[in-house]
């Protein structure tokens, strides 16, 4: 059976190994009456993920997780990809918090919601779809939203990127596009197997960084760090509003 879902307005058809895998997706992919599909995991891809997920994970959950990387590669056909980041909308622009797992990306989001309720809306709590368009760069939801599973159906043009690190003090400063190149590349979920894919990834990251304000936040994960983050992003929004 083949199931179809949308990423940044593009349809992908999955042939799941386990029918229940579709229930991990939001919205749940709809069944289509055709045999052709775009993605089906190989045994090797499934087995590799089996070693990475907790031992108690179901086959369906394992398949759901194993589909991230092949989906990210497939999306390159449309100048889209999947990025490991918390993404939210603030004053009509999307902001991306990037950094390794456990660095406090979600903490910043939940702090902000608690301190300033209703100001921001989550796009994806873990892995938004990013899209290079001719005149802008857009951020979209995806089915992979982290352990908190916070997401929405909201899409927005990119406002900026914040690279997080944990430190004993709170400090937020502008960084150059150059400083963001490797962190962004490393946090993209697609690893190229063909030359055109490597070139597509370079094009996407180039477009992303040229359309984004780039910041670095050294933080303790406390309320003060979130107030600092909000303040800087607010200044950025004010500047863009006046431009």
């Amino acid at each position: 059976m083949v199931y179809q879902t949308e990423f940044a307005g593009h349809s992908l058809r999955y042939s799941f190994k386990k029918p229940n895998t579709r229930y991990f997706f939001r919205p749940i992919p709809r069944r289509v009456e055709q045999n052709e599909y775009d993605l089906r995991l190989t045994e090797e891809q499934f087995s590799r993920m089996r070693k990475l997920v907790p031992p108690t994970s179901t086959d369906s959950y394992t398949e759901y997780r194993a589909l991230i990387a092949p989906t990210a590669r497939k999306l390159l056909h449309w100048d889209c990809c999947i990025l490991h980041a918390v993404s939210f909308v603030y004053r009509e622009k999307a902001w991306l918090l990037i950094g390794p797992s456990g660095i406090g990306k979600s903490t910043q989001y939940f702090n902000w919601q608690r301190l300033f309720p209703g100001e921001i809306t989550m796009i994806s709590g873990d892995m938004p779809v990013i899209e290079l368009r001719k005149d802008a760069f857009w951020i979209h939801p995806s089915p992979w939203n982290g352990k908190e599973r916070v997401c929405s159906r909201l899409s927005a043009p990119l406002g900026g990127l914040v690279l997080l690190s944990q430190e004993g003090e709170n400090r937020m400063e502008r960084v150059t596009e150059k400083e963001m190149i490797l962190p962004v590349l490393i946090h993209l979920l697609a690893r190229p197997e063909e030359e055109w894919e490597a070139r597509a990834i370079a094009r996407i990251v180039d477009g992303m960084l040229r359309n984004a304000a780039c910041w670095k936040l050294a933080n303790k994960g406390d309320d003060d760090s979130t107030a600092l983050l909000r303040g800087r992003i607010g200044e950025e929004a004010d500047l863009r509003g006046r431009a």
Binding site: E177, I181, R191, E193, E194, A198, A202
Partner: peptide, 23 residues
Amino acid sequence: ILTEICGEHVLVAAKEAREVCPY
């Protein structure tokens, strides 16, 4: 593959190079 991002030169390991080189 040698690519260019924001005017910077970036090497990307694809295909079989993925297994032996930094990404």
